[in-house]
C-alpha cells in the first residue's frame, strides 16, 4: 500500500462550506428585494446592476492580473458581484452609466484592492463607491430617482427620495403634516415611505433568510434597527411635527438593506459578538443623527464608514474572557513596548 503524508488530512472529514457559497446565498436572497424594486420603480435599476457587475468583474480581473494573483480563482469567490449589486441598489434608477462605473471602480480598485483585496479592506467597498459619488455629484444623486408612480400616471417622471424630499421641506421650516398635505407626490405609505416600504420589506425577507441560513448573525441588524427605532420613537413622541415616525425611518431609504446586507459585511465589522452589538448601535445613532441634523438625507453610508473606522478598537476592547482566565483584563489599551527596551 502507498501511504502518502498530507498535512491537512482533517479536511477529508470536513463539511463543504465556502466563501463562494456564502456570497452566492447573499446574491440569491437579494432577489425578492430587487424584484419588488423593479416592480415599483421600473426597470431602470436592472441596467445599473448590469453595468456595475460588468465593471466590477472587469476591474477585479484586471487588478488581480496586475497584482499577479490567480484571476479566475479569485473571481469565482463572487465577492465583487456582491459589492457591485449592493452598490447599484444604492444608486438612483436613472443614474447615468458613467456614474455607476465610477462608483464601482472606486469600490473595487480603491476601497478593496488597494487595501489588499478580499478580507483586507478596512472600509465597506460599496459604501466608499457610494460616498464618492454622493459627494462629487450631489445633484444627480438627489434627483435622478424614479417617481414610484411614474410607471402609472406621469405627472413628474423623476423625483427625490422621500427622505430627501421631507428633509428639504423640514429645512424650509415646514412641519411634517404640512409637507404631506402639500406634497405633489405621495410620501407616506401604509407604515413607511410610499412604495419604498414594500421594497424594504422584501429586503427584510431576504435578510431574515440570511439569518436563518446563518450567513449573518442577528446582533448587527437588530441593534442597528432597534437603535434607530428607539431614538426615532423618542423624538417623534416629543415632537411629531418635526421628527419622522420610527417606522418611516426603518422603511424608507436604505435602512433595511444596510442593516442586513451592508453593515453585516464580515470583513469590515468587528469579530466579537459584543463588538457587533456596539457596532450596530453606533451605526443606528450615526444614521439618525445624520438624517435628522446632518447635511445628507440618508446618512447610512457615512454611518457605516464611521463605524468601520472603529472596528479595530471595538475588536480590541470587546475580547471575550478566555477560558480559565480571570474576568476582564482589557479595560484599557496597553501600549506594547518594543522588545528592545
Amino acid at each position: 500500500m502507498n501511504v502518502e503524508k498530507t498535512t491537512n488530512l482533517n479536511n477529508r472529514f470536513k463539511p463543504h462550506k465556502s466563501v463562494t457559497a456564502m456570497m452566492l446565498v447573499v446574491l440569491v436572497t437579494l432577489v425578492p428585494g430587487v424584484a419588488s424594486y423593479l416592480y415599483f420603480f421600473g426597470l431602470g435599476m436592472i441596467l445599473n446592476i448590469i453595468v456595475a457587475c460588468i465593471t466590477a468583474l472587469a476591474a477585479e480581473a484586471l487588478i488581480l492580473w496586475w497584482r499577479k494573483k490567480p484571476v479566475v480563482f479569485y473571481l469565482k469567490d463572487c465577492s465583487a458581484l456582491v459589492t457591485a449589486v449592493l452598490l447599484a441598489l444604492c444608486l438612483p434608477s436613472l443614474a447615468p452609466w458613467w456614474l455607476t462605473v465610477i462608483a464601482t471602480l472606486f469600490a473595487i480598485v480603491i476601497a478593496k484592492h488597494l487595501y489588499g483585496g478580499l478580507g483586507h479592506n478596512i472600509f465597506n467597498p460599496a459604501m466608499i463607491g457610494y460616498v464618492v459619488i454622493i459627494i462629487s455629484f450631489p445633484q444627480i444623486m438627489s434627483t435622478q430617482w424614479l417617481n414610484p408612480d411614474a410607471t402609472k400616471a406621469i405627472d413628474s417622471y423623476t423625483a427625490a427620495t422621500p427622505l430627501d424630499n421631507i428633509k428639504t421641506e423640514l429645512d424650509r421650516g415646514q412641519t411634517i403634516s404640512e409637507v404631506t398635505e402639500a406634497s405633489p407626490t405621495l410620501l407616506f405609505g401604509e407604515f413607511g415611505a410610499y412604495s419604498w416600504e414594500w421594497v424594504n420589506l422584501a429586503f427584510l425577507l431576504g435578510g431574515i433568510a440570511l439569518l436563518y441560513l446563518r450567513i449573518i448573525r442577528w446582533h448587527i441588524p437588530l441593534m442597528m434597527l432597534g437603535t434607530i427605532f428607539l431614538i426615532a420613537a423618542v423624538f417623534h413622541y416629543y415632537d411629531s411635527d418635526n421628527y419622522l415616525p420610527p417606522l418611516f425611518h426603518l422603511f424608507s431609504g436604505g435602512t433595511i438593506l444596510a442593516a442586513f446586507y451592508i453593515a453585516t459585511d464580515p470583513v469590515t465589522s468587528p469579530n466579537t459578538r459584543l463588538g457587533h452589538i456596539y457596532f450596530g448601535i453606533g451605526i443606528g445613532i450615526y444614521t439618525y443623527v445624520i438624517r435628522t441634523w446632518g447635511g445628507y438625507p440618508d446618512g447610512i453610508a457615512f454611518a457605516v464608514l464611521l463605524m468601520n473606522m472603529k472596528t479595530p478598537i471595538l475588536d480590541y476592547v470587546t475580547q471575550p474572557r478566555a477560558f480559565g482566565h480571570p474576568k476582564k483584563r482589557h479595560t484599557h489599551i496597553t501600549h506594547k513596548k518594543d522588545s528592545q527596551d
Binding site: K14, M22, G117, G119, R217, V267, N271, R273
Partner: peptide, 12 residues
C-alpha cells in the same frame, strides 16, 4: 475533497 485556502473574511 480538494479545498483551496481563501483569504480570511473575518466572518467570526
Amino acid at each position: 475533497t480538494e479545498q483551496t485556502v481563501m483569504p480570511c473574511i473575518r466572518c467570526g
